[in-house]
Design a protein around this nucleic acid. Sequence first.
DNA 1: CGACACATGTAACACGTTACATGATTTG
DNA 2: CAAATCATGTAACGTGTTACATGTGTCG
Lengths: 202, 202
Amino acid sequence: MSIRYGILALLEHGPKHGYQLRVCFEESTGGTWPLNIGQVYTTLSRLERDGLVRTRPESEGGQRTYEITKAGRSELATWFATPVLRGDRPRDELAIKLALALTTPGVDVRAVVQTQRTATMRTMQEYTRLKSTGDRRSDLSWSLVLDAMLFQSEAEIRWLDHCEASLTRHRPHATHDSTAARPGRARHSQEEADADERARTA
Amino acid sequence: MSIRYGILALLEHGPKHGYQLRVCFEESTGGTWPLNIGQVYTTLSRLERDGLVRTRPESEGGQRTYEITKAGRSELATWFATPVLRGDRPRDELAIKLALALTTPGVDVRAVVQTQRTATMRTMQEYTRLKSTGDRRSDLSWSLVLDAMLFQSEAEIRWLDHCEASLTRHRPHATHDSTAARPGRARHSQEEADADERARTA
DNA sequence: CGACACATGTAACACGTTACATGATTTG
DNA sequence: CAAATCATGTAACGTGTTACATGTGTCG
């Protein structure tokens, strides 16, 4: 349900054709998410079929210019006024993976956690780098999109630390002494205190 | 790519048929994510076609029992050993919505933020309630899945606060005095300090 | 001319959803 | 017996991906 409304929103600025829509979409999210051009056309067809968009009469030959209809504007307004709910979101693959790793025989859960943490931290560095390479620093939406990913990654790291701590508590070790400080891992007691606090206050 | 590996992981415990797979999957994630039964069968067909799964010979008539193959075990191990990367994840609809709201004429961005915050906080309360209704308190995977959603929701709230703060900074108000404390909103200066700190250290 | 950006589409496939059709077995 | 649960599938559709086919315009 995402690209559909994205297209409607971009057409609210004024009529555009498919190729322009892709360029605009990628601009407004800072190129973070490349938009498939084929999908733009199929989505436009469906939007036209549903009466949310129409092709301008003057479009001949190569260039088909689309504009939003009254019905389209109304749908778009509804989209903006409706929050994104849990049921709308896709399943969290990482959470599923860890839940399954815990109950599947022969899986080293700690290794899964560690591998993921490393990857996520690399991703965060990449975002941070993007944020500081100035050429787009002025664009607010682009900056906020990057922040969204940073906040998400941070939460993921915190959750992974929390998982490791729970693991240590519920599955008493096994390997030789591994209590020494390791880079990239948080202090468990603090993380746990946070989690408890959260549960109490919410 | 999610259910596919979920099924493989469950079959690692031992042979099962389609219906059982759904029940097991929903159990291991605490019923948080209902799994469509139709999809189980179509996915099993694809897995069988790809040689990752086979039907046991003794299955006759109604009950088709599936078991994992050597190739399937190998694929599963690869899945567990490979981190979930940014490119694997679906686009964040909320981030897109806010980015578009900022550039689309006639959209009250603050209202979008506020509506989303309310919805997300309701969701968090629901998760917290689930966590405390004891009947499953002992199940570690289930508890961690719920924690994942809680951590995510928290991050979302923080991001929404951050958006509101950025908005206030870049789009100097408009409405009558609204600087009074409002319930459910964080202290902006602290949030901003956090964000800056993040950018500096990463 | 040849490469590249602009521009529009289609085909095939994976995955997810809702809904429907069909039966066996269990239990009130 | 009737309803619920167990069990297996198919059909249609939306959305997303990769890949292919097909042109025009521009610039070196």
